[in-house]
Simulated scan of single mutants.
Amino acid sequence: MFQLLSSTRYDQYLLSLDWNRDDDGPCPFLLLPYHHERLVDAAKQHNWVQVTASLSYPLLKLSCLKAVHDHSSDENPTAFRIRITVSQTGEVSVSTTPLSALISDPMAPSLFNPLSDMSYDGPIVSLQIDSELTTPSIFTTTKTTHRSLYDQARARAAIPTLSPTQDVLLINENNCVMETSIFNVAFHRSSSWITPETSTGCLPGVLRRWLLSDGRIREDTKHELTRNNIINGEWVLLFNGVQGCRLGRVIDSVPRR
């Protein structure tokens, strides 16, 4: 049986960023209110009534704080990947994985402009294009522990499971870009970053939601993002709820035969 899934970040640096707040003030978890709302929305889509009735934001935050407290010490890192799962009966489970602490705003790469910025000195993710098409379903539009289609896409591209520098772009049956195996994406078109509409079957990620609300990206209402107009070497903005924003470049754009 699958569970609902969401992954965020605990990092003391986040307390210094005005945009990362909840009702208690500055928050050490990256956009945790958005994660809560997405989990509740996913529960509604799966008709998990007990979850929608019981999963409150205070409960979720307390569970995350307890997990961090249980795994923190003077010798351990002060930043963690926070993996949240919720069962059909409403049981919340939180696990932690140590991360390197942030030293800058994780949203900063979204300000990169491929037309005017001559260089980028941060880590770059190499992006291949999946050799097969992905069928959208409730398991692409909600995040769950049922992730075999993403694992299969990475396997087809011969990408190691935990590689931080490689990923694969998923394409739906209408030849439209969806996302990568772990990131939402935006391509630079008409002087701005545009991201696939949710009608493509992509996940409505928490970073995607924040970037849209802040005007840093816009939705692809004209369906410009197709397999055939991806350019080899072009920049792609990548974003998820643990890493924030990163930049990638396409290394494979050979037209499908």
Rank of each mutant, 00 (worst) to 15 (best):
E132T: 12
Q12E: 08
L133I: 15
N174F: 15
G25N: 12
C176G: 08
L102N: 04
L247P: 08
S192V: 02
A43F: 12
D117N: 12
N113V: 08
D105M: 04
S93F: 04
E219H: 08
P33V: 01
S253L: 04
L31W: 15
P123F: 08
N229W: 09
V125E: 00
A157K: 13
W193P: 00
S87G: 11
I103E: 08
N172M: 13
L102M: 04
Y150G: 01
T97D: 02
H69L: 06
D41H: 13
S137E: 14
L133Q: 05
E173T: 14
S16T: 13
R81D: 01
H35R: 13
T141E: 00
F112E: 12
S16Y: 15
S148W: 10
I217S: 00
N175W: 12
V250K: 04
F112N: 07
L65C: 03
E91I: 09
R218V: 06
V177K: 05
Q12S: 12
E37D: 14
S7C: 14
D121I: 10
H46E: 07
R189M: 03
R83W: 01
S56H: 03
V185N: 12
W235A: 07
W48Q: 04
P98C: 02
P77V: 03
T226K: 11
V51D: 11
D11P: 06
A153S: 08
P136I: 14
G241K: 02
D130C: 14
R246M: 11
L111W: 02
Q128I: 03
R208A: 01
T198S: 09
I103N: 05
K222E: 13
F112W: 01
I82S: 07
V51N: 13
N175L: 03
L162F: 12
R154Q: 15
I82Q: 07
S87M: 06
T96C: 12
D24G: 10
S110V: 10
A101Y: 13
A79E: 06
K222P: 09
F80S: 02
H223F: 04
H188I: 14
L15K: 15
M178G: 05
K66E: 13
G205Q: 00
Q45A: 14
L133E: 11
I171Y: 06
S87P: 04
V94S: 09
L17N: 11
L14T: 02
E132C: 12
S93G: 01
E173M: 10
K44Q: 11
E91N: 10
Y10M: 13
L203D: 03
P58E: 10
S100H: 04
S191C: 13
V168I: 06
D18P: 09
A108Q: 12
D105P: 08
V236C: 10
T226Y: 08
T221N: 06
L211C: 03
N20K: 05
R209V: 00
T198P: 09
V250Q: 03
D24S: 13
A108D: 14
S192K: 10
E173P: 01
P164H: 06
I217P: 07
